[in-house]
Computed example of a mutant assay.
Amino acid sequence: MKPAVDPLAQLAEIRTIMERSSRFISLSGLSGVGAGVVALAGAGFGHWYLRTQYGPGGFVRLMEGSEQMRHSTLPFLLGLALVIILLAGGVAVYFTQRRTHSSGRSLWDPVVRRLFWSMAIPLVVGGLFCLQLYLRGAAGLVVPGMLLFYGLALLNASKYTLDEIKLLGISELVVGLVATLFPNWAFVFFAIGFGLCHIGYGLLMYNRYERQASAQ
């Protein structure tokens, strides 16, 4: 006599299979930690550079300075942002690809493409918007704007990956909103949002999904 089949167990198994096929679940927590460390280093370097150029409170002087001053500093800030994005993205791809390879999945399957575009569009729009803020003299709102658009991008992408991304997105939105109240502390909030929040998220992901597998 065949054993009775548990309908609830079958439904749970089907749901698990559907989630695995519609969500990218191979994100690495170490990629978040690495991206956070890169962001902290970038914030520190940016603060040091502006301090050497404009003295103590370098960013405040830049924010309150002339249009010519902002334009002359723009290439450095854009270059710094590009380096941070490339290094953080490279670290994220490296650790995620390593975990994806061990799970037998592709790093560029249809789910990953949907995840990429759901983040890319808000980030590109946000970047262009923040550039206009800077050029029009609202430099103090650039970092809050970056954090807010990044948080929205994470929330938009959360439907294609693990739910913990929502927590990171909400954290970025909260930090971004608080940063609007203290524009003179832009680099501090940049370090908190893109640095510490990423590190905390990465450690949470690693302890929850990867630590046991690494120990084995």
Results as ranks from 00 to 15, higher is better:
Ile85Pro: 00
Tyr54Ile: 01
Val83Asp: 02
Tyr54Asp: 01
Arg51Asn: 13
Ala81Asn: 03
Glu64Pro: 00
Glu64Ser: 10
Ala81Phe: 09
Gln68Asp: 11
Gly57Asp: 07
Thr73Phe: 03
Arg70Gln: 08
Met69Arg: 00
Leu82Thr: 08
Gly65Val: 11
Ile85Trp: 12
Gly79Trp: 09
Leu77Glu: 01
Glu64Gln: 15
Arg61Ile: 03
Pro56Phe: 10
Tyr54Glu: 02
Ala81Tyr: 01
Leu86Cys: 09
Arg70Ala: 06
Thr52Ile: 10
Met63Arg: 15
Gly57Thr: 06
Leu82Gly: 02
Thr73Leu: 09
Gly65Met: 11
Arg70Met: 07
Leu82Ile: 02
Ile84Lys: 01
Gln68Ala: 15
Gly57Gln: 03
Met63Val: 01
Met69Trp: 02
Arg61Thr: 14
Leu77Tyr: 01
Leu82Glu: 01
Phe59Leu: 13
Ala81Gly: 12
Ser72Asp: 15
Gly55Lys: 03
Gln53His: 13
Gly57Pro: 12
Gln53Asp: 05
Gly55Asn: 07
Thr52Gln: 15
Leu74Pro: 05
Pro75Asp: 12
Phe59His: 04
Met69Ala: 15
Glu67Met: 10
Pro75Trp: 12
Val60Leu: 13
His71Lys: 15
Gly57Val: 08
Thr52Lys: 07
Leu74Asn: 06
Gly79His: 09
Val60Gln: 14
Val83His: 01
Arg61Glu: 12
Arg61Pro: 01
Glu64Gly: 01
Leu62Gly: 05
Ile84Cys: 13
Leu77Arg: 07
Gln68Pro: 00
Gly57Lys: 00
Leu74Val: 11
Leu86Asp: 02
Gly65Ile: 12
Leu82Val: 05
Val83Glu: 03
Arg61Phe: 02
Val60Asp: 14
Glu67Asp: 05
His71Ser: 14
Arg61Trp: 04
Gln68Gly: 11
Ile85Thr: 13
Gly79Phe: 09
Gly79Ile: 03
Gly65Asn: 10
Arg61Leu: 05
Gly65Tyr: 11
Ser66Asn: 07
Leu78Gln: 05
Leu74Gln: 12
Gly79Asp: 11
Thr73Cys: 11
Arg51Trp: 08
Ser72Pro: 00
Gly55Phe: 03
Gly55Ser: 10
Leu80Ile: 09
Phe76Ser: 10
Phe59Gln: 06
Leu86Arg: 00
His71Asn: 12
Met63Phe: 03
Ser72Lys: 10
Leu74Thr: 14
